[in-house]
Nucleic acid binder design. Structure first.
Length: 300
RNA sequence: GGUGCCAUAGCUCAGUUGGUAGAGCAACGGACUGAAAAUCCGUGUGUCCCUGGUUCAAUUCCAGGUGGCACCA
């Protein structure tokens, strides 16, 4: 049976170098599961693999989209699965690595098929929310999809809006599209988690942000500043610098916030990964141990 | 060496006319089905420096000790 090795972990833990080592060992290629490194305009702030690293092992889904493109976890699921199947024709093992929890989940478990939302309907729903408030959209969802309304985080406008968009686009309740079961994949999935002691991870994050600044993150952010409203730029490392460009905060403050928000992002990733008991955890660069574990799993 | 000031959460500090304590920042926990580096929800995490005294009761008052800062030698 073909295998997909998933290498995951919090930001700045060292997934890139570890996954390159693993991929080299299995003489295979890497699928990136990173919702921000996929944008060609974002390099420094996303800690995208360097040209040298990309030369060692072929990566997919790095810099393949523009920040102006619409993209989503569901699109990623379709494209990634396609790519994995193609790579499996040549390789028994394929490596997937990244920290975007939902993207990884989409590949491993799948997302239910939901029809595309009409963009004008989405815009209109957002307008309504802005004008009439949370309670207004809550009430509508309660009326058209009481099942989902019970389940959903009712304080989370984004979730409510999405359910409404789908309802208005299709005329069917959002919850009716939920199958509540994982998609079957025709390959074996082995999940490798990478992590460090929390204090050390935070130290790495802080240092990496300083490094990004030295490498010219400010310039990079400036170059996309005109498009700051794009969802793809609602991203740690950029949004804080936009506030600085706006004159709302100092540069020093912006850097501090990038560090803090990166730490919080790492924590959030760990919260998500924690409940997945199929993940086997290792220290980064512990390549031999990881390979041994993978071989053991493959024998089963 | 002497005198004075200070010692409370991870940090900076409030506060308790004696009834075991809070604010900012930081931190921690959780949710997550087509925006997910997004979005949302929740949580003070504390030998109030130590020892003894006074007191029904001390983080608070008193004494000594320890540490820090300042000034005088």
């Amino acid at each position: 049976m073909k295998t997909l090795i998933v290498i995951l972990g919090p930001t700045a833990v060292g997934k890139t170098s570890t996954s390159i080592n693993i991929a080299q060992h299995f003489n295979t290629e890497i699928i990136s599961a990173d919702s921000r490194q996929i944008f060609s305009e974002l390099t420094i702030g996303t800690a995208a693999p360097t040209p040298e690293e990309l030369q060692i092992v072929k990566h997919h889904f790095i810099k393949t989209q523009s920040i102006h493109d619409y993209y989503s976890a569901s699109l990623y699921e379709k494209q990634a699965i396609q790519k994995i199947e193609k790579l499996h024709q040549k390789h028994n093992t394929v490596v997937l690595t990244g920290g975007s929890m939902m993207y990884i989940d989409a590949v491993c478990n799948g997302i239910d098929d939901i029809p595309d939302v009409d963009p004008t309907i989405r815009e209109k729903a957002i307008e309504e929310f802005k004008e009439f408030g949370l309670e207004y959209i809550q009430k509508e969802l309660q009326k058209v999809d009481p099942d989902y309304f019970e389940k959903v985080d009712q304080a989370n406008a984004k979730r409510i809006l999405h359910a409404l968009e789908v309802y208005r686009t299709t005329g069917k309740p959002f919850s009716s599209f939920h199958t509540n079961q994982n998609k079957k994949r025709n390959f074996k999935i082995i999940k490798i988690g990478l992590n460090y002691d929390r204090a050390y991870l935070y130290e790495r994050i802080n240092k990496r942000v300083d490094l990004m600044m030295e490498e010219g993150l400010e310039q990079e952010a400036k170059s996309v500043y005109p498009y700051r409203k794009l969802n793809s730029l609602n991203t740690v490392g950029y949004k804080e610098l936009f506030s600085y460009f706006d004159g709302d905060i100092s540069l020093k403050k912006a850097v501090e916030l990038i560090k803090r928000n990166s730490r919080r992002y790492a924590k959030k990733q760990l919260t998500w990964f924690r409940r997945d008991e199929t993940i086997e955890w290792f220290e980064p660069n512990n390549t031999d141990q990881i390979i041994q574990y993978i071989k053991l799993q493959n024998q089963e």
